[in-house]
Design a protein around this nucleic acid. Structure first.
Length: 915
RNA sequence: GGGCGGUUAGCUCAGCUGGUUAGAGCACCUGCCUUACAAGCAGGGGGUCGUAGGUUCGAGUCCUACACUGCCCA
């Protein structure tokens, strides 16, 4: 048998191979289980079909993969469901851009041809992101991959729409919506991003009819005056009280409109009088509703002015603004113009300035859905981590507005509503109707709009399992266990999934007719997921947001090619402290690449010893059983076993709490600083014991033990670093592994009986002894190769530990010999004192008296400060009366130790030759 | 304007219900190619925990104010 591994770890040489293997072998496929017991499942937040993998995806998927691999290895039935989102606007724009290069427009092609073209695009380019995901090692069930426009999901979308419509929770109406003139569609409030911008506040004078006076209003969008149908003042505003009810002339269009009283007018802002344009401003729209004002729409879907704007028709909104201002100036009706900071809304997708515009759209009446979505979170049926997102969620949910769900696009789920040309009413139906449901007219046509992409993704937790059919999948997999996602889609997606899930999986509008207990049970089972873990943003090393324009985007694929997927995954995990953004730092990744290399070389070392022992007949691989804990023979064995189980326990707790950072750091430190730095170094002595039969027996037990811990560590590490652990794990079994993948083995289970604090304390003493000797040698500048005699004064118990581990001390501290003495060594050259022993390196070299004095003085100062503080506490009556026994005892003990140490150091200082 | 966070070593961040000497990685300094690993080993330096008060026997940790800073919503 041979375990030939290259000296340095090369992730590129193995990762692609394992990634393909996991997919090809369908290792993570789950068939429908019989019961909902012992299931752990989660949904991949579906990336846009047009998407390319970015660092945020990688963080998200790394976290999900760690969690799902961990649960899988705990023997749970795990399902991680992948899919992609059809991403209405994004995809349509992408294909339109492609068409533009062929000098084509979708309008010329017609709807059907265009949609066919999008599907074609999707077949060619769509889902590239899923291939990138495979490269990350994501252990999803590829056999269950979905697309939000799949036939079955489309059926479910229609079903939801029809039911909500029938329940009065979807309505159509003419309202002010956010309109993107570039995308030529309405967008929801959430799709508008607000930006502080330097603009201007214009004052315009409106002549009052029957007087020579004017009323002056202030506005940031003067062109909208062409659609004014009133002027509003605050009824409490003394300045304007007498003007209420008077009529003014809207300049340029010469329409006569009334001055009305409305609380919305803020006396503090501008002149206190505001123009009212119900068709182009949401607040003005509301005023219009209250006062029954006319709505005059002056813009078309491209934000050019229309025929209602008279002479300005055909002008773009900004050209019209310029012209309107010029014309007002000419008529001497333009007042002060001043600089003004204002917040303007831009389209999330294309960054075009959004125009509030009156149009007919479909809306979801959100209050009944929100009410239940608030209840489940308040009652803890859905748990948020970090907890503060609960507050953010509830805050938003309590101030929610109706959701505009129609989009004037072609790509998406078409709204299942048909308008009647005769009676003007809508027929909403699952299947295309032949005639109007109201007047039986055959002159009906389907609504041309499609649904907001988030409408269908809000349904995924149940539609992907077969809803509206009552499938076995739905029964066992719903609710999903967990959702891991970024805060950026908390409202877009998370909140809406909760609303939709709790409604459709919670008896819809019939829930409240259940009795209390039944209702509670139903409600609890209706949630789309039991827990939500929300992660932060991945930023660049300088904490800047990554963006294409800044050019600071880190491509995950590029970075994994340089450092290896495992190293990048480990970086993200180790920095994923909840609530804080990750400043992605390559230095850190470099460190974890070194960690992978460390694991690799530990494997090389162990394999080398396995081969050697096998050749000498000291050991056979056949006898190795990972499930069996071998007897711990020595201090180092007992210690590493204790540490292994303690770390296993710590990992368990950290992962339960989604503390990826804690988990990663714990396993890192264990493997490197404990297993490699101490255990392997010590066990080398036994591995190289010799050729006699008893030596071979020693080697055998040592090797078995080392392998036991090492193999267990690979399993501990495997969720974090699936590639390197898979590769090495297969090599451990020399190509004949007990399972197809380390991912299908069991995660180590902590045995608290094997965690032994006395053993750990004893080892800590041995370590500090060795470190002290090393420190003295370093200070005395003893050549590395030169072994030096060591003298020590130690109490019996400690002496025993040192004696029993003499070999380790000799090897690790470069000690030639260890002699015990009764006399104090504190005054001797090359000595160091500790509470438990005094140690001295015997080395004939003149010490640097000045340096030694400085070192001792510094040490003394530190210890005295500590002792003072301890003494202060001990002489404080309040402290002695109130502090817990444990704390008091600890301080008392420490104070005694300090007194001893201080005396010794003082004496050593006194013994130094005068300078 | 409303809400939520952050401020700890040169940098990036931990520090769990207040308790004995505030930690890690990177960077830095010194010495080592010790046959697993120089992507390594050993040793070392570096912090008045944003500021000012308060609660407490005891505060990085709890409270208040302020400063700076980030994000979300309007």
């Amino acid at each position: 048998m041979s375990h030939e591994l290259p000296k340095a770890y090369d992730p590129g040489a193995i990762e692609a191979r394992w990634a393909e293997y996991w997919v090809a072998e369908k290792l993570f496929h789950v068939s429908t289980p019989d019961s909902a017991k012992n299931i752990f499942d989660l949904l991949l937040p579906p990336p846009n079909v047009t998407g390319r993998l970015h660092m945020g995806h990688m963080l998200n998927q790394t976290e999900m993969d760690i969690i799902i691999r961990w649960h899988r290895m705990r023997g749970e039935n795990t399902l991680w469901l992948p899919g992609t989102d059809h991403a209405g606007i994004a995809t349509q724009m992408m294909v339109e851009r492609q068409l533009a290069t062929e000098n084509k427009r979708r309008q010329d092609m017609g709807r059907e041809k265009f949609i066919e073209r999008v599907w074609e695009w999707k077949r060619h380019y769509g889902g590239a992101i899923l291939d990138q995901m495979k490269r990350l090692g994501a252990s999803v069930d590829w056999g269950r991959e979905y697309f939000t426009m799949d036939e079955n999901l489309s059926v479910a979308v229609k079903e939801v729409f029809v039911r909500l419509y029938e329940q009065g929770l979807i309505y159509r109406g003419k309202y002010i919506v956010n309109w993107c003139p570039r995308c030529m569609t309405a967008i929801s409030d959430l799709e508008v991003v607000h930006e502080e911008t330097q603009g201007k506040l214009y004052e315009i004078r409106y002549p009052i009819i029957g007087s020579k006076d004017y009323i002056t209003v202030a506005t940031t969008r003067p062109e909208t005056m062409l659609g004014d149908t009133a002027i509003a003042v605050n009824p409490k505003d003394e300045r304007y009280k007498t003007l209420i009810g008077r009529v003014v002339r809207v300049p340029l269009v010469n329409r006569e409109v009334a001055i009305i009283a409305d609380d919305w007018a803020n006396p503090e802002f501008g002149t206190g009088a505001v123009k009212v344009t119900p068709a182009h401003d949401p607040n003005d729209f509301a005023i219009g509703q209250r006062h029954n004002l006319a709505q005059i729409n002056i813009m078309d879907e491209t934000a050019k002015l229309n025929e209602n704007a008279g002479p300005y028709a055909g002008l773009d909104r900004y050209a019209a603004r310029k012209k309107v201002l010029e014309d007002l100036e000419k008529e001497h009706l333009l007042g002060h113009v001043k600089e003004h900071m204002l917040s303007i809304g831009k389209c999330d997708r294309c960054k075009t300035v959004v125009e509030p515009r009156l149009s007919t759209q479909w809306f979801v009446k959100i209050a009944p859905l929100a009410k239940r979505a608030i209840e489940v979170v308040e009652k803890g049926h859905i748990k948020f981590t970090p907890e503060n997102y609960k507050t953010i969620y509830l805050n938003w949910m309590n101030n929610i507005y109706d959701w505009c769900i129609s989009r004037q696009l072609w790509w998406g789920h078409r709204i299942p509503a048909w308008h009647c040309a005769d009676c003007k009413q809508d027929t909403v139906a699952r299947e295309a109707p032949a005639k109007c449901a109201h007047c039986a007219s055959a002159k009906i046509e389907q609504d041309t709009d499609v649904l907001d992409t988030w409408f269908s993704s809000a349904l995924l937790p149940f539609t992907t399992f077969g809803w509206p059919k009552q499938t076995k999948d739905l029964e066992v997999f719903y609710p999903t266990s967990l959702l891991i996602t970024g805060f950026d889609i908390l409202f877009f997606w998370v909140a809406r999934m909760i609303m939709m899930g709790c409604w459709f999986m919670g008896d819809e509008n019939k829930l409240d007719s259940l009795n209390d207990a039944q209702r509670e049970e139903k409600l609890k089972a209706s949630v789309p997921f039991r827990e939500v873990y929300i992660h932060a943003l991945v930023r660049d090393a300088d904490r800047q947001k990554m963006s294409k324009t800044k050019g600071n985007v880190i491509d995950p694929i590029e970075i994994i090619e340089r450092f290896g997927t495992d190293a990048v995954r480990f970086t993200l995990a180790s920095m994923a402290a909840p609530g804080t953004d990750i400043a992605f730092n390559e230095d850190r990744t470099e460190g974890y690449r070194a960690f992978a290399n460390k694991i690799w070389n530990a494997a090389r070392f162990i394999f080398m010893n396995m081969d050697k022992a096998q050749q000498s007949g000291a050991w056979t691989a056949a006898g190795f059983d990972p499930a069996e804990t071998p007897d711990a023979k020595t201090l180092e064995d007992k210690w590493i076993l204790s540490r292994f189980h303690a770390v296993t326990q710590a990992l368990d707790e950290s992962l339960k709490a989604y503390r990826f950072d804690e988990a990663a750091n714990a396993v890192y430190r264990f493997f490197w600083n404990e297993f490699c730095d101490w255990y392997i170094e010590i066990v080398k002595l036994r591995l190289n014991a010799g050729e006699s039969d008893s030596d071979k027996a020693t080697t055998k037990t040592a090797l078995t033990f080392t392998l036991h811990i090492f193999e267990g560590s690979l399993r501990l590490l495997s969720p974090f670093m699936p590639f390197i652990t898979e590769e090495i794990w297969h090599a451990v079994y020399d190509g004949k592994p007990p399972a197809k993948s380390i991912a299908l083995t069991r995660y180590p289970v902590a045995d608290s009986k094997l965690v032994n604090s006395a053993t750990e304390a004893e080892m800590a003493l041995l370590q500090s002894f060795i470190v002290d000797v090393r420190t003295i040698r370093a200070e005395m500048k003893v050549e590395n190769k030169l072994k030096t005699p060591v003298e020590t004064q130690a109490k019996d118990g400690i002496r025993k530990t040192l004696e029993q581990n003499l070999n380790s001390i000799q090897k690790l501290a470069n000690a030639e010999s260890l002699t015990f003495t009764e006399k104090s060594l504190a005054n001797a050259a090359g000595a160091k004192v500790s509470p438990h022993y005094e140690v001295r390196v015997v080395y004939e070299q003149k010490i640097d008296v000045a340096a030694e004095r400085e070192r001792l003085t510094k040490e003394l100062k530190k210890l005295e400060a500590e002792k003072d503080s301890a003494q202060r506490q001990l002489s404080n009556e309040q402290f002695m009366a109130k502090a817990p026994e444990k704390v008091k005892e600890g301080i008392k003990r420490r104070a005694e130790e300090l007194a001893g140490l201080i005396a010794k150091i003082q004496s050593a200082l006194a013994g130094l030759p005068k300078a």
